[in-house]
Design a protein around this nucleic acid. Structure first.
Lengths: 252, 252
DNA sequence: CTACTATTTTGACGAGATCAAAAAAGAGCA
DNA sequence: TGCTCTTTTTTGATCTCGTCAAAATAGTAG
């Protein structure tokens, strides 16, 4: 890496946060080992994080506090299109009974900004805020297809095209062709490219300058998501996309 | 304060995060001024945070990334009762058409863990993860009432009893009486104590050891939330509470 | 009560965080 | 297109304070 200078203590703290996220709750020594620092150092960091309210100590063990949820919730709320998105995704869930969601691109990945599950919903339990590769989800591909070419290249360079299932597209040329098809069709499909048995369909959401701001989509079991149903979902999604775009411009 | 030793650089970084949350997006100098450090220091911190993906630079200005949402979402998902809570709160929204939510106590405050808005919902736009005083929301009071006495004292000592509206309870004795009433009635009411014109009702959710794990509640416009309707909501809430408690024990 | 493990405190060393100041990059403006 | 002013980024020197090993304390299991 060797980018510009960074502050070591801050890096350590953030590594501790990351480590804690994966092995919660944990004691000082566990954390120390995970980030390869002396226990005393880990201790001081955990103490600092605790006093600032980012970490909580319960029964001698540390875990991340809900302050992260607070910050995340605040960031999300500050996006001017969030309220509109929430309304329309809820509507979508109501209309389809499936899992509906809205994602944006950040740091070259797709991040789930909002998600809502209908009564008949079948799918995986994706937590809000999850980062994933853009190329193996319908939400991601819908966004990727509408990014400038040079950004697409950069993102592929940075994150690569790893596979998550046998169906994930791992070849760059193949992906670019697919993105082209998505642009022309107006929607992206994830056919078990991320999770076996799960299909998804998503459409891009653009702003007044035709720049991509995110994507709305629906996901569910492959069995139910046949050609006929997918076409129907495309119509519903297109309508919602339209409502979001119009309401967003209005509030701009 | 002068508790145990803490790491200064980490504190500064967290202060920067906090500052950024409130005045996003912001430039280096704005941040530097907000936390009272030289611009060069703020610059290094922002750079470190950016390289670790916690801060994003857009058009020369910095803002918090969605990594916070990611961590918050992960923490939430790791709570073993979360899935159950989400299902039941969704149900609640569906049944009542109002705003429904689930909160837990952390660091002496009430934190909104999940929230869902029905079709006829009227209320304020509370972001997920929001921390608020326990004494001025129905969700908070339902929890507070079921905490051990010494913890109640500690929390009041630490956070005080400030007022948010003319109706907020600011007297300790009065609050303790109210908490007693809540324990006996089995529900807590917020009658415009937090926001003018908004009424809320919440019931506690306990685990197998009768320890409080959170509270479920519904909120809406004072006009609609009359005595009759409140009684009806109490029944619905009680049923949901029961379902959450049973399903939670089952998965334990 | 004893042995073991995990957490917390201590203190000394030297890496590196901080700061002022300089350099570079942007943003208006005529 | 230059010129001024503002903001960001880089630099380098000082000495704070983050780091670490080791000791002290607390916690746990037998």
């Amino acid at each position: 890496m060797a980018e510009t200078k960074t502050i070591n203590a801050v890096e350590t703290t953030l590594e501790i946060v990351e480590a804690l996220k994966n092995r919660q709750p944990a004691g000082v020594s566990t954390v120390a080992e995970a980030v390869s620092v002396p226990v005393s150092t880990a201790y001081m960091h955990l103490n600092t994080l605790r006093q600032q309210g980012y970490v909580v100590k319960e029964a001698g063990n540390y875990r991340l506090s809900l302050r992260f949820l607070e910050h995340g919730g605040a960031v999300r709320q500050q996006l001017d299109f969030f309220t509109v998105v929430k309304d329309e995704v809820n509507q979508l869930t109501y209309l389809t009974g499936e899992i509906a969601g809205f994602a944006v691109e950040e740091q070259g990945q797709r991040v789930v900004l909002y998600r809502s599950e209908g009564s008949g919903a079948v799918g995986d339990q994706i937590p809000i805020g999850e980062y994933a590769h853009l190329h193996w989800t319908s939400l991601g591909k819908a966004i990727l297809a509408h990014l400038p070419t040079e950004r697409i290249d950069k993102i592929i360079d940075r994150h690569g095209l790893p596979a998550n299932t046998p169906r994930t597209i791992t070849d760059k040329e193949e992906l670019l062709t697919e993105l082209d098809a998505i642009r022309r069709a107006g929607y992206a499909v994830d056919d078990a490219e991320r999770r076996r048995g799960i299909r998804g369909i998503a459409v891009p959401v653009l702003d007044a300058d035709e720049e991509i701001i995110g994507s709305v989509g629906v996901a569910g079991p492959k069995m139910r998501f046949g050609e006929r149903y997918m076409a129907e979902l495309f119509d519903t999604l297109s309508e919602k996309r339209n409502v979001i775009e119009v309401r967003n411009e209005f509030y701009q």
